[in-house]
Design a protein around this nucleic acid. Structure first.
Lengths: 250, 250
DNA sequence: CCATATTTGTGCGTATGTATG
DNA sequence: TCATACATACGCACAAATATG
């Protein structure tokens, strides 16, 4: 499937430069977007209008837009138009991973909220991650975090109930895991492992994150440990994939 | 929304332990799966049969199964049954990231194939990542990699055409980026950054990876550099999210 | 190719217990 | 105590996809 040039096709403005027509249009649109010609989140001109502007067939424009859509630069909405995706917020995964520092440091107004909490018994999987016995009472925190009023993640966090009595109340007032741990005398903690996968948003998460059903999610399972390497909390975080990207710099 | 116990409901086998019914069933099923009672990839008993076995309503079983499905432990197929997901292959993201070492080292028979190649001009985005000027001729390799005959990733890799003349032929015979670079005298290279996001599989990738349309993909954009930190290649990799998980250990 | 049984997906109604005021 | 709202769990029915002979 070695791709080659388009030979004739003198229809349009420029001369045939040996590059696929739709690619040139895609690059052109990409540059326009990168230069800020269009506002992030705004609607692109209709496909027909773009086609006329470039002097090409609408199918060629569609191919260019499809390429940009696949790279996450634009998003087509049937019956509505094609929209420029907002830039994804970079979210570094490091040993020291603090939501407020990372996202807030990037100039966003961060916030959090405790959606609910519950007392649960440790499932086999959770027990293994927290190095506890299955059935150990755990406090579960269902947290929602946002930046600039836009939901950025829903996270389920489990901690040993006996070690953090009333932890949900401490979290509810401070809205910060770091401050909650500090309240229990833990001044330092770090990320041990992060396992990253992806999923499709179902009803509950879609509603919390205010995204459409079926949109892609980044799913991160992580364990945080104290200075001695003892597991403190296990977290299952769901990020809307079109709002942020995880950045790993080894 | 603090959840509490169910008091009466003496219908079923066990005593009401103060834990949601569907949670106990989910944990029970999870344990059975973890203990190896069921073969990975095999079919679970039907919902009605499970419901009868636990003495609960089918909806309750469905809720338990939905919880397991969301965590990627099982997968429901309408008209067919509910199946136990195969374990995801862990794929560590480190400075030294070599597919064959990582996946092969885990005891899988790895393989790769050059699906297609092309000569392209650097788009604005690629130029920035490779520190080249937009329009610089690039060699594009469309690669498919698999483990145990199952597709594990499709990757688009771009390298400067002038620096790696005939690189596609070298790759086609060696089926390895490491060996291709060695052929051009580069004995050492490392991963600089990885940006991770997620997407929904469209037709082309779904066909290559042999997954259903609409399944979740992990998308990794990475840049590899030589010993002096000069960018060598930019890669856009799509992984089927239910076949592997990215592991970050800081 | 067709008919039929099986299985998951979906909807609605009901009973019961919890939370709130 | 009562009224209301909500969530869990149950029961029944049917749609849609799949498996089977």
């Amino acid at each position: 499937m070695t791709r080659r040039a388009l030979q004739p096709a003198d229809r349009s403005a420029d001369a045939p430069s040996g590059v696929l027509l739709w690619r040139r249009i895609a690059d052109d649109l990409e540059q326009s977007i990168a230069r800020g010609t269009f506002e992030p989140g705004s609607r692109l001109p209709g496909e027909i209008e773009i086609a006329e502007r470039f002097g090409v067939n609408r199918h060629t424009v569609r191919r260019a837009l499809a390429a940009l859509a696949q790279r996450g630069i634009v998003r087509a909405e049937r019956g509505s138009g094609t929209y420029i995706e907002r830039a994804r917020i970079p979210y570094p995964i490091r040993s020291r991973t603090r939501f407020s520092e990372i996202v807030g440091g990037a100039g966003h107004a961060v916030g959090g909220r405790l959606m609910s909490h519950a007392l649960e018994e440790a499932s086999p999987d959770l027990a293994r991650r927290l190095k506890l016995r299955p059935g150990t009472p755990l406090l579960r925190l269902e947290r929602l975090r946002h930046a600039d009023r836009v939901p950025l993640s829903v996270a389920s966090t489990w901690l040993e109930a006996a070690r953090f009595p009333g932890g949900h109340r401490v979290y509810a007032t401070s809205n910060s895991i770091t401050r909650m741990l500090a309240h229990f005398g833990i001044r330092n903690y770090s990320r041990k492992t992060s396992r990253i996968t992806a999923a499709i948003a179902e009803a509950a998460d879609a509603a919390s994150l205010r995204i459409a059903l079926g949109r892609p999610l980044l799913v991160v399972d992580s364990v945080d440990v104290d200075a001695d390497g003892v597991p403190l909390l296990a977290t299952h975080t769901r990020f809307p994939a079109d709002r942020l990207e995880l950045v790993v710099e080894p």
